[in-house]
Each structure stands twice: as structure tokens, then as C-alpha cells.
Simulated assay, not measured.
Amino acid sequence: MIDAPDAERQNAILMGSWMSLTPSVKALEFMEFLLRHPPSTRPPNLLLIGDSHSGKSTVLERFLSLHGPVVSPEAETSVVDVVVITCPPEPKIKALYMSILDALLVPYKPNAEEGAMYSQIKLIFRKVSVKVLLIDEINNTLQGPPLRQRQFRNALKNLAHDTKVRMVTAGTYDALNALTIDEQLGSRFETMYMPRWKSDKEVGTLLATMEKRIPLKKPSDLKSVAMLRLVKERAEDSLGDICSLVRNAAVKAIDTGVEQITEALINDLVWTPPSKRRRSVQPGVQLAI
């Protein structure tokens, strides 16, 4: 795309592309194992843990893209091996069921009883051959009272038991408490971590890969010592922030016509480090609404 119009190049940069990074590849390999695993009484599951913006959701989206629905004109129904949802903001069972039905594009009555929705889910899972259920932001289950949390976990257990579906859940480190507090449920999940990017060697490889894929007309030498340290410092070792920082800088490089990412350009970029985005409201300070 090096000779494409500026707007097209910038759009391609911001969209990004999949990069086969070691933690992500390992997670995908285990998810492939879950997909191949035959139905069983205690199906294996995966809990993917990491900081915000560490690549968890991207891994789920990648797996879904590799195993999209199979639609055949001759078949009575589609084959849907993988379904992805975001965990409801609170541990409400009905909201969970509605999310699953929405993901499957199945009509339902919003005022239907939980039991009716659950029966509908079991039927449709069987009908379209769902094998793996991906649940992002599983740490949301900690947002309600203990009784509701326990009921929500029981709903997940029942779903896995009744449908033999394998589950992949992803969330922040709080998600460990969300699932492992229930010994019976927690014992069914293997845990994998999306680490922070502290190694200069690994970050250098990542930046070199990104530079090859970004359609700028001049080299930026992102893996140089000075550029690597600057990017790591501003992105604070977060994978998502490293990628966002470089992409935003590349877009500005096209806007300004310099066609390369420089230290001056990164320093001049409007960019708030991750740690400063998490600000607490000081006592006596009123928020404007």
C-alpha cells in the first residue's frame, strides 16, 4: 500500500493486522485443542488472564475468525463451532442467556423466563453444533452481591455440563477470584497469562515487525535502542499501548508529510500513558456530566 492515497494508508495502519506473538500463539493452540476435544462430562476450559489492553480480546477475535460459521445451501442449519460474547456488566443469568442468543442471531422474547431461554440455548447449541463458547471480560462477574455471583457461576457450570461446550474465558487478574473462588468450577479451567512486554529483545522484534507492515515511505528504525526505550517508556510495557502508540505516530507521520516515525514525533504526540488514564476522583471534586 506504499503508493496508495494517504487516507487509505492511514486506515490500514489503524485497522492493524494479526501478529503471531508467542503468548497469543500458545493460547490459540490450547483453544484448538479444546475445539477438537470430544464432548465429556467434565470438559476442559481455559482462563486467559492479563492486564487491560494486553491482547486477550484480540486472541478471542482471532480464534473466532479462524472458525466462523459454515453455511451450506444444502444443509438445514449452519454449523457454528465457536460463539463469542462479552460477559454482562453484572452477574445476571438472564443477561448471560440473552447475550448468547444475540450472538447466535436467535429471536427470543425479552420477557421470557430464564428457564425458557436456557432450554432455547441448549436446543440451538445442539442444532448448530456449538463446541466452544468464548466469554470476554469474565471479571464482570465480581460486580454483584455474593449470592448473585454464586448463582451466575452455577449457571456457567450447568451450561458446560448440559451442553458439553468447552469455555474460554478472558479477563483481568480479578477474573482469578471470579472463577477460582468456586473450587469445583475453578478446577475445570487451565490458566494462561498474557504478560507485560518488558524484554527489550521481544519488544524490538515486535517493533521491527510493525515497521515492516506500516506503509510509510521512509524507514523509522523502531528497534533502535533510543526508539525502543522511548516507546516502552510511553506505553509502559503494555502490548496494546505499544501498538496504539506506533500506529498513531505512523498516522501523524503521514499527516505531517515526514513519512517516518521519529523521536520528536512520538514526543509531540498527544498521548496519555496507561497509568495516568486511571485517575481517581479526589474528595470534594465534582464531575461535570
Rank of each mutant, 00 (worst) to 15 (best):
I124Y: 15
V106I: 15
A178I: 07
D200Q: 06
E211Y: 09
V270G: 00
P23N: 05
L28N: 08
L179S: 03
E114N: 12
L21D: 01
E211H: 07
E8D: 12
V281Y: 03
A208W: 07
V258R: 04
K232S: 11
K276I: 08
N154C: 01
V251N: 03
I2A: 11
A226V: 14
V84L: 13
A112Q: 07
E183S: 14
R229K: 15
S220E: 05
L46T: 00
L156I: 10
L176V: 15
G171V: 05
N111L: 09
R166W: 08
F125R: 06
M194Q: 04
G257V: 08
L159N: 09
G257R: 04
L104K: 06
P273F: 09
K127H: 11
L228G: 02
R148Q: 15
T180Y: 15
D268R: 13
D174G: 14
D182R: 08
A116F: 11
L34A: 07
E259R: 05
K56R: 15
R277K: 15
Q143H: 14
A178D: 06
N111M: 09
E8A: 12
M194I: 02
L123R: 11
N158W: 03
S220M: 07
I138E: 02
A178M: 10
E259L: 09
Q282I: 01
H67L: 09
R279N: 10
S17M: 08
G68D: 09
K157W: 05
L269W: 08
L206V: 08
K223L: 05
N140K: 01
K218N: 09
A7I: 12
V251W: 05
E113V: 07
E32N: 09
Y193V: 04
L133F: 10
P69H: 01
N154D: 15
S280G: 12
P215S: 08
I49S: 00
R166V: 03
K164S: 13
G186M: 05
W197Q: 05
N111E: 12
Y173H: 14
V168N: 08
E137I: 02
S52P: 02
M19R: 14
N267Q: 14
Y97P: 01
R234N: 06
F189C: 04
T191A: 04
K252D: 10
V79Q: 13
E259H: 04
V258W: 00
E8N: 01
P69E: 12
